[in-house]
Nucleic acid binder design. Structure first.
Lengths: 201, 201
DNA sequence: GTCTATATTTCGATAGAC
DNA sequence: GTCTATCGAAATATAGAC
């Protein structure tokens, strides 16, 4: 492999990610991954022994794509409003860059929670840490008392759901690709506004 | 078939619904459906010619499970607050009764939007009608001006997302089955509160 | 490392007896 | 209508040449 064209392993991983996220583990075909990578089926098994092992190789990588970046903002020392605006902006951007990852990840997690959830646990997304952050803000009277569980779920729901429902949105309302992206862009203001109005003193 | 035990066709449909919603079309096995129904694989093909036809038979039924009931509330002549509380309560109840239907439906829709979206269109969920309702409330100054698109998405997001993320919630936080249900019950107040605070004058 | 060819397994579907 | 047995078509995985 030269430094210019990516190593075969990287090409395979990229192709696998595309096909797996688009079709899910059960719907993905090794043949399709090989085609996408421009190589032969047998080579997939040479690099990764089985479909399952190939899946495992991309799943961790894909989860990191949609989780941790934005969380840093919440743990920074910005004030609370800035944190929310910052989080939503970063999070929506990373989802826009990978619009069908959320559906893929949640689908696979619901099929094999026990096997796949370990991948999250080691990823530094400490839910309790975030909840602690919110508790502290409440004590300092920066925000009204809220249930941290609901607060976090509300925030993530509002960001992630439109991507999960994208096919419905685009089929039912007249959304095309551009309108969907514009709609998400609007939500960078809409979501913080909604969240903050209910909790700022 | 007697009037007491359900007809074989009904038994098959019920089994198919369970297996399909749990594993998705690609993950579902005709054998598993037969086992669940307590009959033989061949009989599935006798009643429904193919796996795909069996899927089509349950998909429409399953979609109706999570969409239309709650919408009636929004079209009633209650005042706006009552509508929101009523909608959220009814909607969450119907989701609680079928917790893994949302994930199933959204997953299948994202795999085959063109083929499956027709099922919605004939179901009386007229998105534009709802948007019109909201526009009217704004004109009457019952609520502040809001973007109807965002309003509807916010509402549905907050209701549905916890069910899509249920495996993560139960794996990452210490939620068990009972705590999850209690959490959803709390949201019957939490969601209307959040939504209404941002839009009542 | 990469390919062609082939083995193996799984699964949807059918044939045919009862 | 329901079953047992089997077919045939994928799809994953391996063998072996280059």
């Amino acid at each position: 492999m030269s430094e210019l064209d990516k190593s075969t392993e990287q090409v395979i991983l990229r192709a696998a990610r595309k096909v797996f996220t688009l079709r899910g583990f059960d719907g993905a075909r090794m043949q399709q991954i090989a085609d996408e990578a421009g190589i032969n089926k047998a080579l997939l098994h040479y690099y990764f022994r089985s479909k399952e092992k190939l899946f495992d190789a991309i799943f961790k990588e894909v989860m990191q794509l949609i989780i941790p970046g934005a969380v840093q903002v919440l743990l920074s020392d910005l004030n609370f409003s800035e944190k929310i605006y910052g989080f939503v902006e970063k999070y929506l951007d990373s989802l826009l860059a990978n619009p069908d990852v959320p559906g893929f990840v949640l689908h696979e997690l619901s099929l094999h929670p026990e096997r796949l959830l370990d991948n999250i646990k080691g990823m530094g997304v400490d839910f309790n840490l975030l909840v602690g952050q919110i508790r502290r803000e409440i004590e300092l009277k920066h925000i009204k008392p809220v249930e941290p569980d609901h607060f976090m779920i509300n925030l993530v729901s509002l960001c992630m759901f439109p991507f999960l429902a994208r096919p419905v949105l685009m089929g039912l309302t007249g959304f095309d690709h551009g309108k969907f992206n514009a709609f998400i862009a609007e939500r960078k203001q809409e979501i913080p506004r909604l969240i903050l109005q209910s909790i700022l003193p």
